[in-house]
């Protein structure tokens, strides 16, 4: 059965409606975002579900996961903190920010905190060069920008994520 289709019928209909019939394949990236929403990465199962919806090959779906950096083929923390350390941000101290943040979390860039909550990664320019240090937070609720950051307020933000996570768990219990 097609999990994706049964989980998000309305969204999928809306996505498909954006493109002309001959351009149906355009929906592949929106569908990949949809498939990634819940777990933060794309399972092979989802590749085949998307390929069914769009009548293309799994391989044609997979190639996009490999090409685009916002699609992930492996599990990481529930949230990804992606710090821009590109030229302009680095000129304004983002590399130091990253180092201190990682030290505070006792991980190295690219690693995930022990509790599996956040993965800290370095990324290229995010079009926020005037507001360094900055990072984008990739998680269940999409992507949000956090700008003019300090290690202090970033740790606070992580704390909030942790709390809301446990809260949700309690709620579902």
């Amino acid at each position: 059965m097609n999990d994706l289709l049964s989980k998000y019928p309305e969204e999928i209909k809306k996505i498909l409606a954006k493109y002309p019939p001959e351009g149906k394949r355009s929906a592949v990236m929106p569908l990949l975002f949809l498939a990634q929403r819940k777990e933060g990465y794309i399972r092979e199962q989802a590749l085949s579900e998307i390929s069914q919806i769009l009548d293309i090959q799994e391989t044609e779906v997979a190639t996009l996961v490999g090409f685009y950096t916002l699609f992930h083929d492996g599990k990481a923390g529930s949230y990804r903190i992606q710090v821009c350390t590109d030229l302009c941000c680095a000129l304004r101290g983002s590399e130091d920010f990253l180092t201190s943040l990682c030290e505070a979390l006792e991980i190295k860039p690219g690693e995930t905190t022990l509790d599996g909550l956040v993965t800290v990664e370095e990324v290229k320019c995010l079009a926020a060069c005037d507001k360094a240090p900055m990072y984008q937070l990739q998680g269940k609720d999409g992507i949000s920008y956090h700008e003019n950051c300090s290690v202090g307020n970033t740790l606070e933000m992580i704390e909030e994520l942790r709390e809301s996570g446990t809260q949700k768990q309690e709620e579902t219990k």
């Binding site: 590749l47 090959q57 799994e58 391989t59 779906v61 997979a62 190639t63 996961v65 490999g66 090409f67």
Partner: peptide, 17 residues
């Protein structure tokens, strides 16, 4: 179309899913 490139740049490789 069961062959495609995966990754990009120097890491580009051939895959089949």
């Amino acid at each position: 179309p069961v062959l495609e490139f995966y990754h990009r740049g120097r890491k580009t490789d051939i895959v089949s899913y």
